[in-house]
Design a protein around this nucleic acid. Structure first.
Lengths: 227, 227
DNA sequence: TAGATTGTTAATCGATTAACAATC
DNA sequence: TAGATTGTTAATCGATTAACAATC
């Protein structure tokens, strides 16, 4: 696989392609052109072809792309065939929700253990997963050497927990704590899910819509002087 | 407030500025220059000044920006003073986690009701919030006319529920269903939190790191022919 | 006042779009 | 073969960065 520097914008579109290709596959479509894919995804055909060309030549002139083959290529690019393992740290509501309802396996990730401080949780299997005592975090992570840690602890413990995880060899952190992790000069990959940023952006666009609607309404009520 | 078209990139940085300014305020900093802010946030001073200038003139030459005043401006831009109200639809694990642990009020949003299908939940207050029966969704949403709906129902019901919400006047949907909502030509603002896209992007960057590390290791083991 | 730092205009950089030869 | 559609190069567009006059 080519490993040139690919822009973050392209990377963020890859999961969207994957999802769309799955959808197409499920509805029995087995080939698609960049034109049609663009129509369905609101992207230009050029952009789609440029995106794919970062990683190789997946299409065929005059034909387009084979849906399942392209799907497989993108899955591979995203590392879905690498059998990544993950531990989930902090089985509060969010953590619990992820264990119960998020299909890690759909994305090629295997959840191998969970950790929490609450004594009544420790030992109880949740969604087929053993919950370990948080105090054994570094020992057990050291044994399991998971690739990813899903960080769902309360804000206050976010940084300390992240440091332990990185020190015990975790390579990526999927961060749900709403806190910007401060891990100096480590080569750990951090992927944040910031609920608050998302809600605030929604607030912005909502405000914009409301202001536009108000402006329109007032133009109607008080018609302008002369054009 | 100016209402020119502002790029999405800028909008997505606003919540980051807000968070940083809160942090600065808490640690007693009351003024900051674009230079220092840039250093702390890994942005260029130019970009910061450009970003702010989309909305007005918030600084002062030779001085910089007043932290609390700037914070207030950004909060306003994001609509945090508009007293948005929200209903939460689907009190499963994710929904429950949001009610219990996400401080809507910190972001100027008031959660006014929740809905679920499970009979044993209906009537029970969760986090001070009454859970209504899902079958009363359109009636009660029609009465409360919330600005936002937080959509946490199972995938399968995502689109139907979203349609009901839009028809009863909801203006924005904060979508946690991992499903791309298909709401033709409505002017509803949709903000998605796609867990899967985020995990897959993490998978990409993790793969990249691993490949780089492997490449480096193999270069060490098998030294190149000449230089 | 002198130094600092803004807001803004101009220059650069990067990403998206268009065009087209290659080819299935 | 003719038509369709790719992969890629060139053109355009937009976002970021640099520069600097204005001014606190």
């Amino acid at each position: 696989m080519k490993r040139v520097k690919v822009s973050n914008n392209v990377i963020r579109r890859l999961p969207r392609y994957l999802q769309k290709l799955d959808e197409l596959g499920e509805s029995g479509v087995d080939r698609i052109s960049s034109g049609e894919l663009g129509r369905q995804m609101n992207l230009t055909p050029s952009q789609i072809r440029q995106d794919f060309s970062c990683f190789g030549e997946f299409g065929q002139q005059g034909y387009g792309y084979n849906v399942s083959a392209l799907r497989a290529e993108i899955a591979k690019i995203l590392g879905m065939d690498r059998n990544f393992t993950a531990v989930l740290v902090g089985v509060g509501n969010i953590g619990h929700a992820l264990i119960d309802h998020f299909s890690f396996s759909n994305y090629g990730v295997k959840l191998v253990a969970a950790f929490d401080v609450k004594k009544d949780m420790v030992g109880t299997p949740i969604g087929g997963l053993i919950v370990h005592d948080m105090k054994d975090l570094s020992t057990i992570v050291g044994e399991l050497h998971p690739d990813i840690a899903v960080l769902c602890v309360p804000k206050f413990y976010a940084n300390d927990t992240a440091k332990i995880l990185v020190n015990t060899g975790v390579k990526g952190i999927w961060n749900f704590t709403n806190v910007e992790l401060d891990l100096p000069e480590s080569s750990t990959v951090i992927e944040n899910i910031y609920f608050s940023d998302s809600l605030l952006a929604l607030g912005y666009y909502l405000s914009e819509r409301i202001d536009e609607a108000d402006a329109k309404a007032s133009r109607k009520r008080i018609p302008g002087e002369t054009r």
